[in-house]
């Protein structure tokens, strides 16, 4: 890649499946399909998301921004090895 030292960021998704109302925004609009609808129910009978492909999360935080229930957020990880391996 010609971006010399630019590395692909990586993030960890934290999900609060108690507040989630299963609206599906995060699953639908995650650009790298990290999330998927979990077959589990939460106490209110909704299907919260779960990180199906956590390694594909690039910490864009779109899910955190779009979640109307404030039930998902992402923290930035330190991601050097994977970036190196790709080169």
């Amino acid at each position: 890649m010609f971006f010399n030292n630019l590395k692909q960021l990586h993030g960890t998704v934290y999900i609060n499946d108690i507040w989630c109302k299963g609206c599906g925004f995060c699953v639908q609009f995650c650009p790298t399909n990290v999330l998927d609808i979990s077959p589990e129910f939460n106490a209110k009978g909704y299907h919260p998301p779960y990180a199906k492909n956590p390694e594909k999360c690039h910490d864009c935080q779109y899910c955190q921004m779009i979640c109307p229930e404030f039930s998902i957020f992402v923290t930035k990880d330190d991601e050097i090895a994977k970036g190196e391996a790709e080169k």
Partner: peptide, 23 residues
């Protein structure tokens, strides 16, 4: 600073804690 720090440190963190059930 956070994004630069991300580019430097090496540890790769494992993903989230939500239960991943075989579907």
């Amino acid at each position: 600073a956070a994004s630069e720090k991300a580019a430097v440190k090496a540890v790769k963190k494992v993903a989230t804690k939500a239960p991943v059930k075989k579907v």
